[in-house]
Write a protein that binds this DNA or RNA. Structure first.
Length: 254
DNA sequence: ATGTCACCTGGTAGGTGA
């Protein structure tokens, strides 16, 4: 069984690449972030023709998430219950007995900004909601664009990025809080190439120079951990002519 | 290199968010 996450940065632009990727990587479930589509514009027919069920939750211009799966996803939840978030950032469903949560964490802009305060509140609400989800679902996967680089080895220049957005102690503490609920970073269960990133800025020739961050993650519950046999970042789509700035991350389970 | 992309409004450019 394979699950994956990908921030596509506009599904309207990236749909052909998504269909190509799914044809080459027929995962069992895939969560998308930054679809940037209102619900009436979601390409259900094309994704259905590719052999996937899909649940989606979007808004105008910003954010937007989706959950694609081979088998129908059950018990769908959109956004963190009771948070009252106006931004479309979370979609969850149960796929083949696994609770799958796909999330587009707030960017946070800068540590002294209002957007950072929003990010902190959102992270706290997510943690408390996921705590309950784990009680209800022993087999759980939380994946998406976390907009957090958990450790210095997840940053191409940790000195330059120290204290900057994605790398602040507050964000990293929240990441550790999620692990503390009984989740594990699937990527770090395995030996990985050094300088493994999931996002490269469009600017500054960052991809060509491999200057990136690892901010897209797949966390699995303790019950799933023994079943994880691989976790990889697929850089191939980032080499496309008109790529998303993020690469997909894929986890394989027995 | 100060090097981009996607979206909006309101237009043949500027602002925002990432």
């Amino acid at each position: 069984m394979k699950f994956a996450t990908w921030n596509v940065n506009s599904l309207a632009v990236r749909l052909p690449q998504l269909l190509d990727w799914l044809a080459a990587n027929p995962v069992d479930a895939l969560v998308l972030q930054e679809t940037k589509l209102t619900d009436d514009k979601f390409p259900t027919l094309e994704i259905g023709a590719a052999g996937y069920q899909v649940q989606w939750f979007g808004q105008k211009t910003y954010n937007g998430v989706a959950l694609l799966s081979r088998t129908p996803a059950l018990d769908i939840v959109k956004n963190i219950p009771d948070l009252g978030d106006e931004q479309a950032r979370v979609i969850a469903g149960t796929v083949d007995g696994v609770r799958v949560i796909g999330a587009y964490f707030p960017n946070g802009q800068a540590p002294d900004s209002e957007k950072f305060a929003y990010k902190m509140g959102w992270l706290e609400a997510l943690r408390e909601w996921v705590r309950g989800e784990l009680k209800a679902h022993e087999r759980l996967v939380l994946m998406g664009d976390f907009n957090i680089a958990p450790e210095d080895r997840d940053v191409y220049d940790p000195v330059a990025w120290a204290g900057q957005i994605h790398c602040t102690p507050q964000e990293r503490a929240h990441f550790q809080d999620l692990l503390g609920l009984g989740l594990v970073d699937a990527f770090r269960l395995f030996e990985q190439p050094p300088k493994s990133w999931s996002w490269w800025d469009y600017r500054n020739l960052a991809f060509r120079k491999n200057q990136g961050l690892r901010i897209d993650h797949i966390l699995v519950s303790e019950a799933l951990r023994p079943r994880v046999t691989a976790c990889e970042i697929d850089k191939q789509p980032r080499r496309n002519e008109r790529p998303s700035d993020h690469a997909p991350v894929v986890v394989t389970l027995q």
